[in-house]
Amino acid sequence: MRKTLIAVGVASVLALAGCGGGSEPAKTEAPAQKPAAAASAPADDANAATVTGKVAFTGEKPSPKTLSMEATPACARAHSTPAKSEEVIVNGNGTLSNTLVWVKAGLPAKEWPTPSTAVKLDQKGCVYSPHVIAVMANQNIEVTNSDPTNHNIHPLPKTNREWNESQPPNGEAKMKQFPREEIMIPVKCNVHPWMRSYVSVVGHPFFAVTGDDGSFSIKGLPPGDYTIEAVHEKYGAKEMKVTVGAKESKAVDFSFAG
């Protein structure tokens, strides 16, 4: 089994190396935050509808927890003040960052084209940046290490294949994909146990991740009845139903309580 895996791995590397000279490298999307990161919308539907909204936060704003990076001096040195956990980020306008909003149900059964651009997941200051990303199934994720220290990238999916790979300081970017839809896959670094990120893999392009204004916009939807779900790593998931007609734009607001 191990030999087979090694053989497949070597073959994959050789295949990638062979392709490298003749094709363009995958393009990289800007970090999917600030404000909201949206998937690329299909442009072939003149009647496309839009769902917009925001994810509000009610209750007492939690104070972010301090990360202890003393175990790796290079990590501690990267921050002038102690780094904080990004588990819950409440924006100045009372909204919630890092919330995935996606169309959970209602879309027609069809193959949606996978974007050729890669979504970047960087390790900088010994934290994952962005903290939450979303991609389409089989879309490239470009994992980079901007730190002067080793990291290991270790996603913990339930339905996709688990992997764990090291990445040296300023090492080559890794291109990774997840073939199956799976929401909020935790990604950790076992070298630095405070590092945590979440990758959502969606089977279609209708999703967004809220940024520092807590808003989202899902464009290019075919008219229809949809279930929209907002998912946050700490506060869980909430669903709302919405019906959109041709060229219509509707607002759907979510609210999570602390």
């Binding site: 790796t72 990590c75 220290t149 080793n150 790979e165 070298v191 630095h192």
Partner: peptide
């Protein structure tokens, strides 16, 4: 350390963090 029996391909990697 994702590899075994060596660690990062070495007998003695940088001993930091995990």
């Amino acid at each position: 350390v994702p590899d075994w029996p060596l660690s990062y391909g070495k007998l003695m990697p940088v001993m930091e963090g995990g």
